[in-house]
Amino acid sequence: MKLLMFLLLPCLSLSEVGDNFNNCSQFFLNGVHPHFSKPLSPSIKHICQCLKVNGKVEYFYATLYNTAWAIPVYSAYEFGTPSPVRKDYWYIEPQLDGGNNAEPCMGTQGEATGANQALNRDYVGSVESGYDKGHLYPVYHTNNSLSMQATSTLTNAAPQNSSFNRIEWKEHERNVSNILKVCDQAYVVTGVVPKDEEYIPNNNNPRVRVSKYYWTATCCVKNNVFTGQGYYGPDIDNNGVNIVRELSITELQDKLAIDYNLNITIFPGVPRPSDCYGDKVSLSPVSWNGSADIYLSLTGVGKS
C-alpha cells in the first residue's frame, strides 16, 4: 500500500523544488505535465532542474521525484540533437533536504543529509549488486554541454539492472534519438516503476528503491502532425532475453495504470483521439489491480 500513498496530495512553493512545474512547463507538450487520476502525496516533489550559469538560473528539464523511494517517478524534457560527451559526477537537489532557503539549483553533495533524496553513499555496492545509476533524461538526448551536465543529478537516476542499462536500454536511447531527430519538436517523458519493497543492498540503511522497469513515452511534432510511441523494459521475450518492448502511448498508460494502481495521462496537452496516442477513440478507465504498496507511496492513502 505504501507505493500509491507516496504519489498523492498537493501543496505550494515558489522554489525550484516544490509542488508545481510553473517555472519549467516548457518541457511538457503544450505546457501540460502528465496527469494522475488522484492527488499526489506530500512525499512527491516537483523539480525544475536547473543550473546557475554566470549567476543566472537556467532550466533544462522537469522531474517528478518521490522522496520516499529516493528515486524519480519521471523526468520530462524536450529532445535535443544528441551530445554524446558525458561526465561521471553526480549532483543533488539542495532544497530537498534544506528547504526553500537552500540553493535553488542542483549542486555538489557537500554536507547534504540525504534525508529526502539519494546520495552517492546510497549506491555503494550497487554495481556489485547488479545495478547502475540509470539516467531518465539521458546524455544521448541532450543538445549541449550544459544540458548534458544537468542530467547528472541523482534526482534524475534510479537503480537499473547493469547489463540492461549498458546494452539494451543504451541501444534504445540511441534508436529513439535517431527517430526523433527528424521531428520539428519532440517531447519525451521517461519514468520508473519500482519493485515492491526492494532496495539497493546497503549495510548502513538500504532506502533507494530498485526499478522493476523503465518506461518512455515520446511525442513527435512534424508539420503539425503528432506521432507518439511508448516503450518499457526490461521485458522478457519468448527466448528468455531482456528486451525493450514497444507499444502505443495508450497501451503504455494502460500498463502503468495497473502497476501504479492509478490512471495516468502522459500527454494531456494533446487532444484525444490523437495519433500521438495511437488511438482513434477515447479509452475507458483501466481497472487497478497492481501493487497496493506503490499506490500508497504515490497517493498517501490506502487503496480501497
Rank of each mutant, 00 (worst) to 15 (best):
L51E: 10
D122Y: 02
S41V: 06
D97K: 09
G55T: 10
E111Y: 08
H35W: 11
N120R: 03
I47G: 01
V124T: 08
E128C: 03
Y65M: 03
L40V: 15
S25K: 13
G110C: 04
A68R: 06
G55W: 10
Y59P: 01
G55L: 02
G125H: 07
Q49M: 08
W90S: 02
N30V: 00
M106W: 00
Y65P: 00
E93Q: 14
A112S: 15
H33D: 10
N116H: 09
P39A: 15
Y59S: 04
T113A: 07
Y59T: 05
P42Y: 08
S25P: 06
K45D: 07
Y131T: 00
R121E: 05
Y74V: 06
A118Q: 01
S37F: 05
K52N: 13
D88H: 11
L51D: 07
F27I: 13
P72T: 05
A62Q: 04
T81M: 10
V73R: 00
P72F: 02
V53N: 07
Y77T: 06
C105N: 04
E111V: 08
N66C: 14
V53M: 05
S75N: 11
C24H: 10
A62G: 06
Y89W: 13
N120T: 01
Q117N: 05
A76R: 07
V57N: 07
D88L: 06
A112R: 10
R86E: 10
S126N: 09
S37W: 04
H46Q: 08
A62E: 02
Y123Q: 00
S41K: 02
N54I: 10
S129L: 07
V57A: 12
G99L: 09
N23K: 15
E103A: 14
Y91D: 10
C48T: 08
F28H: 07
L51Q: 13
E93H: 08
F36A: 05
G125A: 11
Y91I: 03
S75W: 09
P94K: 09
P84C: 09
H33E: 15
A70W: 00
N66V: 11
E128N: 14
L40C: 04
S37G: 15
K87H: 13
S37L: 09
Y77H: 14
F27Y: 15
K52R: 14
G31D: 08
